[in-house]
């Protein structure tokens, strides 16, 4: 594998982890979030600071990073308890802008210069780079997917689905909306934090603009494209949106236009996403299996 494709692959794996986190919030719990990149950034900055200024290793910093992002996620999930969908969308956009400007203007976070000199991850005495980093990211993605899968099969997962479908009916079945919305926010933002930490140690230099609103839109596009609420959807979305810009590199100027067109087409013809219910992929698959309906 060329260095170029390893880099693309690693970034796709990292973004897939972040997208899986957003999928927990949007797809499983039905809460809209347009500011997910903020948590991606919080994870990256937390890990960068803890390993540079803090002098910790990646591994001892990681639990703290997950704790910090999850805790901030919990705090910022609180508006979801009171706000209707449209206002929640605007609030989460606002959160994204606030986080980015804090990173940009508070000297502690390196200001406009960002944070550089982030150490490499060391595993079994080896400095992780290249293919090893790709494998490490893929490993973390596998763990993330496993957690998502376990969550969807658990009582908490079922409670989240019920809330997404009908909050009133769910709460009259004994499901606490507060508890499960916040659970989804904590879990989803902690996954974004994990992605952020990996990103920081892969790039080894981060700045606030990496985690702006366009990144949030990108992550949400991955989830919508792949299929909200499905297990593999976010991964497929990250793959497609990660590879497309490389394939269409000659068309760089039209990239945003292509994304928009792609999203509109999806919403018009495959609203459930590529892997969603009643999608072409699902139908073909069940036909191949020869199963009923």
């Amino acid at each position: 594998m060329s260095e170029y494709s390893i880099t693309i692959g690693t970034l796709i794996a990292i973004q897939a982890i972040v997208a899986c986190g957003l999928n927990v919030i949007v797809g499983y719990a039905g809460q809209i979030s347009l500011g997910h990149a903020a948590f991606f950034g919080i994870g990256a900055y937390a890990s960068a600071l803890l390993t540079t200024a803090g002098g910790l290793s990646f591994w001892s910093a990681l639990p703290i990073v997950l704790g910090i992002t999850g805790l901030i996620g919990l705090f910022l999930g609180l508006p979801s308890l009171r706000l209707r969908e449209d206002f929640l969308a605007i609030t989460t956009i606002g959160i994204n802008f606030i986080v980015v400007s804090v990173f940009q203007y508070v000297p502690f976070f390196g200001g406009a210069l960002g944070i550089g000199g982030i150490p490499r991850i060391v595993l079994f005495g080896e400095r992780i780079r290249g293919v090893s980093f790709l494998l490490l990211s893929a490993g973390f993605l596998a763990i993330t997917l496993l957690i998502c899968w376990l969550f969807t099969r658990s009582w908490s997962g079922l409670a989240c689905f019920a809330l997404r479908e009908d909050e009133t009916a769910a709460s009259s079945m004994g499901v606490s909306p507060v508890r499960f919305k916040l659970t989804a926010f904590i879990l989803g933002t902690a996954m974004a934090g994990l992605g952020g930490a990996l990103y920081a140690h892969f790039m080894r230099f981060i700045s606030a603009t990496d985690f702006g609103f366009p990144m949030s839109v990108m992550i949400l596009s991955m989830v919508v494209l792949g299929g909200m609420g499905t297990l593999w959807g976010p991964v497929l979305g990250a793959l497609v949106l990660g590879i497309l810009p490389e394939v269409f590199r000659p068309l760089t100027d039209y990239r945003m236009f292509l994304y928009a067109a792609l999203l509109l087409l999806m919403i018009r013809f495959q609203p459930g996403g590529l892997l969603g219910e009643n999608s072409l992929a699902r139908q073909t698959l069940s036909r191949l299996k020869g199963g009923k309906s």
Binding site: L158, A162, A169
Partner: peptide
């Protein structure tokens, strides 16, 4: 007000939530 995108079985299991 059933949960439309959950199966019949899952709908019933939500009713059992908290009584594991």
């Amino acid at each position: 007000r059933v949960f439309p995108r959950l199966t019949v079985m899952e709908n019933l299991r939500v009713g059992l939530y908290g009584i594991h």
